[in-house]
Nucleic acid binder design. Structure first.
Lengths: 347, 347
DNA sequence: CAGACTTCCGAAACCGTTTTCCGAAACGGG
DNA sequence: CCCGTTTCGGAAAACGGTTTCGGAAGTCTG
């Protein structure tokens, strides 16, 4: 067997001209074949394909991009690459986008506007076809400085904005809260307390409204005295739960608006000797990874992070292909995941 | 005030020719100015800069890449985008790499070789300057199919390989285990049990060797009967701990080779009524986010994930600039994070 | 059989840079 | 004053594709 010197890795890069030469046609024809353009006979098509295969030809997408001013590339800028919600959203984006032949640039802004801007400029220079901005935080950036994008389509993920003509994808906090509160009410709980996050979050307000809505629908009274607002963290849950349970008429259910709050509350309940779920039902929000490891495992309403990512990717791709769709706010439905902390059997 | 029709976003894209025209020089000169090339007078330099600023000129990096065959772009392929260790490594990579003006393409292979290959081909077509492969799993891919990269530099992150001429960055499992076992020994524990992961992992072996080394150095006897191998998961920790604690001569310390194992063990100890850390000291590995939330909070040896990512990025960049450095295995030192589960006061 | 289409293919321009190479001007030394 | 060197600037050729346009040949009509 002779040494296979012309091995598959095909020494330097083989261009469309090399293929043309081997196939005995012009570069233009090769281009047409590679792009399945019409008006080339089946015969030459075969010849060209054979030549391309033989030479192991791979079109240089840089050159293509230069001519076409389309790169099949997206930018993805996140506030917080290590944020607990970021990964799942990114996975959703990557999934739909790479299935369509697009690649995505990953950028981490650390929540710093200057860094975000710098990344954006690089992305623009690299001629991305679109940009997704992920925020780990749900803050609304009302007065945020306008981004230096030209007419590059953008979608915001897990982030609200007032900017014109940009699409936002967020979880349906209202609906999620309806799910959770409805579950509690369906289980016969009558005095349902809410331990919420900081008041300035959109989510906080929407979730509270969701609870009210669900309770009203179920005919369960809503007692505003049973609502607490604090931080999203554990300590806040501990404090609020301790407070609520020492009320003259304590609640029989705690709806915690984050799983962290819920584990804090769980700690408080444990310390007070109240049993979960017998004495008090407990439900969290977010479906964090640790929720399932609590004792008892935490019922919680799951954020549809992967779906949100998928939707964001789809929206962006559609916008790139079909051009300027209107700004819109997409709320992706949450899902209730039933575990033991409310006393319901698993569905 | 007249309408600022020639607004800063500079309608279409302004090219080097536009700048040249405005500055009254040739495109070649503009290029030289933009790249700080020598042999252009300070005067024209100024003129050109002014023109560029005025037109808001941003060089088209696609065109530049075409000519230079350098894209300032890296590919990053991960086994498991949602893996618990992935994010931190990615952050490390992104951090050093974007500081040097490089962008990174994010790809998720879901551990599927075909998908990995497909991503790799896209990356090559897009002419990335280098590739990093992250594995969420520590498996050694001995017979892994050769990757279809030409002479593009690669570094493996959190992954061993036998392929020639590729650099690997992994945690120093041996050193980490020495740290943990040394801590236990220093606290006066004499019967130190090990709950390890599956035997076929490199890490499993290295960590066990680390324990033996540390114990020998501290003059603490090593009892092979106190070693258990199982899965990395909680259930495995529960079973092994239950088993160990019902031995005639139970251990006074448990070195769990993952935090998941440790929380399983913690559950077993709790159910058996043995107190942590009074009766038994417990130490985990990985420094997972939930370690701090255990009761008692878990002492653990932290994986240097961000540092590993940084190192991988640095190595790749160096290789890109300086060309073919030799294959090497880099072990990044772990760090002991002391909490309450061993009874030590915080350092 | 003439004329109108249709199909097939290639020459050449183009996308926006970088870089080589060459000529002109300025400068310095003998 | 003449002849090397530098210094400065531009024309033109890449880089590797795509696309327009026109010509040649073949296929229908009537």
């Amino acid at each position: 067997m002779p040494p296979k010197d012309k091995a598959s890795p095909s020494s330097a890069s083989v261009t469309i001209r090399d293929v043309a030469r081997l196939a005995g046609v012009s570069p233009a024809t090769v281009s047409k074949v590679m792009n399945n353009a019409p008006y080339v006979s089946e015969e030459t098509r075969q010849t060209v394909r054979a030549a391309a295969d033989k030479l192991n030809f791979r079109p240089n997408s840089i050159a293509r991009s230069l001519k076409m001013s389309r790169t099949a590339t997206l930018g993805l800028i996140t506030d917080d690459l290590e944020g607990v919600f970021t990964m799942s959203m990114m996975r959703g984006v990557e999934e739909v986008v790479s299935a369509q032949g697009f690649s995505v640039f990953l950028c981490n802004s650390y929540g710093d506007a200057a860094r975000e801007r710098a990344h954006l400029e690089v992305l623009i220079d690299k001629k991305v076809d679109g940009v997704i901005l992920i925020s780990g935080y749900r803050v609304r950036q009302r007065g945020a400085p306008a981004l230096p994008l030209g007419d590059i389509p953008v979608v915001y993920l897990y982030q609200y904005t007032d900017e014109a003509a940009v699409r936002c994808v967020v979880p349906d906090d209202f609906g999620g809260a309806v799910l959770g509160a409805g579950h509690l009410a369906g289980l016969g709980r009558r005095r349902i307390a809410v331990i919420n996050g900081p008041a300035h979050y959109e989510a906080t307000r929407h979730r509270l409204e969701g609870v009210q809505h669900a309770l009203a629908r179920a005919g369960v009274p809503f007692d505003a005295a049973l609502v607490r607002a604090g931080k999203w963290y554990e300590s806040s849950g501990y404090a609020a739960a301790s407070d609520l349970m020492t009320l003259p008429a304590p609640p029989d259910a705690l709806f915690c608006m984050s799983d962290s709050i819920a584990v804090g509350a769980l700690g408080a309940l444990h310390d007070l000797g109240v049993r979960v779920p017998q004495d008090v039902a407990l439900i969290g929000f977010d479906n964090r990874s640790f929720a399932v490891h609590q004792r008892p495992p935490l019922t919680t309403v799951a954020l549809p992070l992967v779906q949100m990512g998928r939707l964001a990717g789809d929206l962006l791709l559609k916008d790139i292909r079909e051009g300027g769709s209107a700004a819109e706010l997409y709320r992706v439905p949450c899902e209730l995941v039933v575990r033991q902390s409310c006393g319901a059997s698993r569905a």
